[in-house]
């Protein structure tokens, strides 16, 4: 084993490109077999991680946080002050990319929009895997330059009196948008509220949540 110096990564990329199978499924299969044989990975652990991020951790986790904040002003204050600590209060345990969680609140005057222009940083522990468009060039390039045009492509038409705050995740802080609670949801339980909170509303590409409750 030698120290890894990423300055030479371009050469490594070239060497790998000329050797490995062209089908990504075959490449990854070969990688897993190799790492198992070398004693560097346990296939059972791969299964376990896959199951967690396929079946257990997703936007429903973030929706619980939002619903609690809507129903409990003291919790909301703690959440806005320190997202990382506040999500633990709800028993949310998954730690991937939520070590410095910053929650930003939408109001009548402010709309928040989250992006990562340099890669695709995302608060996985509360939102799960990111949607494909979040990782694509169109969103990453344009969210910081023409946010209102991007929002319009998601069906969000913002009046000019609403300010857009864009958050480009350039460090290890991860951003979660706290959407506005829709009117007509007074007296709803947390489960009912959580059921209307969408993935996009917590990224900021959706603003007005529909009040058709599917939860109970």
């Amino acid at each position: 084993m030698t120290a890894y110096d990423p300055k030479h990564a371009a050469e490594h990329h070239d060497e790998i490109h000329s050797h490995v199978p062209s089908d990504p499924a075959l490449r990854v299969k070969a990688l897993e077999s190799l790492l198992v044989e070398k004693g560097l990975v346990d296939s059972g652990a791969i299964d376990a991680w896959l199951e967690i991020y396929r079946d257990q951790v997703g936007p429903k986790v973030g929706a619980r946080v939002v619903a609690r904040a809507w129903n409990d002003v003291a919790y909301k204050a703690r959440l806005l002050a320190d997202g990382t600590t506040a999500i633990k209060e709800l028993g949310i345990q998954d730690g991937w990319a939520v070590g410095h969680l910053k929650v930003v609140e939408n109001t009548d005057q402010v709309h928040n929009l989250v992006v990562c222009t340099l890669c695709s940083c995302y608060p996985h522990g509360v939102l799960g895997m990111s949607p494909s468009w979040y990782k694509k060039e169109a969103y990453r390039s344009r969210a910081v330059r023409e946010p209102r045009a991007v929002l319009a492509e998601f069906g969000v038409k913002l009046p000019t009196h609403v300010t857009v705050n864009i958050w480009d995740s350039t460090a290890e802080l991860r951003y979660l948008v706290l959407p506005q609670r829709p009117s007509g949801t007074e007296g709803w339980t947390e489960n009912q509220l959580a059921a209307i909170v969408t993935r996009d509303s917590m990224i900021g590409t959706e603003r007005e949540l529909p009040t058709t409750s599917t939860g109970g």
């Binding site: 990504p24 499924a25 490449r27 990854v28 299969k29 990688l31 897993e32 790492l35 990975v41 652990a45 791969i46 299964d47 376990a48 991680w49 896959l50 991020y53 396929r54 997703g58 799960g128 895997m129 949607p131 494909s132 468009w133 694509k136 169109a138 969103y139 344009r142 991007v150 492509e153 998601f154 069906g155 996009d200 590409t205």
Partner: peptide
């Protein structure tokens, strides 16, 4: 243009989930 998706699976293909697991 951005191409929004209403809902999509966390992994489109099995190998993507395996790679995450690795």
């Amino acid at each position: 243009l951005v191409k929004p998706t209403a809902d999509e699976p966390p992994f489109k293909h099995d190998w993507e989930g395996r790679m995450l697991g690795i």
